[in-house]
Nucleic acid binder design. Structure first.
Lengths: 196, 196
DNA sequence: TTACACCTATCAAGTGATAGGTAGTCTCTC
DNA sequence: GAGAGACTACCTATCACTTGATAGGTGTAA
């Protein structure tokens, strides 16, 4: 999978109900977090009744876990493998920066993981775990990328991965809070890799 | 005001009702955001009835704006002036990093501004504005600090301020999401200033 | 006939907000 | 200095509404 496709795992308009529910829930979480959407909101978006949403996902925790599991899976599937000979670390990192902006900043949103993290105190353990799992996947992959990019120890690469994630997430907070999308590039620019 | 006191604007235990309400609301927002607390929660915390909270702050928007206005005011009052001769930029920046950790990370919370930013889609305009105002105060001050610290153009210092804020906020997201407080220092370490 | 995917109807709990009452205190006037 | 009025800071009670969740019915397809 090419680096440009990392964030472009779009869904087709016509899908089964379960997927439509997950799509609606994912969009709702991105927009307002865990507490800001209801089963009725999701139901209306999908075109069914709220009881039918409960049929597919009995509780809200079930629903949100399912969203995070799918999100993590799709995210992971879209990432190029840093352990292949033709892996281009610089291009991949730049593509990641662009992808993050395209998915979050340009849609005037924060990432689904930042939103759920903010709501962590009201999440059940299963949901918290699915969130932590996603961050682990992301951190592990970025650690490999930075190891390819800069060499050094595992710990050093891990720290760089954390700093990188923090920068992008923090940048999207800044954009949201100030309403000035330009902040994203100002923050991300220090992480952009020059072309060979 | 010394750099060490930037984040230590603590309230005394006995205060008037209005302040108690603001204290309770601030703590509640930090814990769960805009949607995760009710007038009844605040009332119980303060020891009055919910109608009495409405007496002091008619609507939820009024209450949250008051919280942010007080927070911004106290924050601003606690910042040392970067335009004095004896201003120590290095020490101030390190103290800021420590203060941010003490107030947020060590309490297993994210900052009140990150929380409200995540809820931005459900905030009324006045609340959004009070949030944006706070970020402006913070960015302006940090811009001055970085100008003292590194020199360069206004724009360069502004970018550095944004990168710095993003790093700290992103770090606290990472800490919350993973449950590993160590991430804060790993991210913040790259911003720490060596002693003279 | 059985499983599936929906539905209607309803529940108890919690929400922000309002109306209107009450005790205490302050201030002005005679 | 006593009484009247107004103001303050609470209260009880209630409103309309939304929430997550459940029970139980309906149609359809294998």
């Amino acid at each position: 999978m090419s680096a440009e496709n990392m964030f472009s795992h779009k869904r087709l308009p016509s899908m089964d109900t379960k997927s439509k529910i997950l799509n609606a829930a994912e969009a709702a979480i991105v927009k307002g977090g865990y507490g800001a959407f209801s089963f009725r909101d999701i139901a209306e978006e999908v075109g069914i009744k709220s009881a039918s949403v409960h049929y597919h996902y009995p509780t809200k925790a079930d629903l949100v876990v399912a969203v995070m599991v799918r999100f993590t899976h799709d995210f992971q599937a879209a990432l190029p493998d840093p352990n292949t000979p033709d892996f281009d670390a610089k291009r991949t990192l730049n593509a990641f920066i662009d992808g993050f902006r395209a998915q979050n900043v340009e849609h005037h949103n924060m990432s689904i993981c930042t939103m759920l993290t903010a709501d962590k105190h009201q999440l059940s353990d299963v949901v918290s775990q699915s969130l932590a799992d996603f961050y682990q996947v992301k951190l592990d992959w970025l650690t490999s990328v930075f190891k390819r990019l800069e060499g050094g120890t595992e710990t050093a690469a891990q720290n760089r991965a954390g700093q990188f994630i923090a920068a992008l997430h923090g940048a999207s907070v800044l954009v949201q809070a100030t309403g000035e999308p330009a902040w994203y590039e100002k923050v991300a620019s220090s992480w952009r890799q020059p072309a060979d």
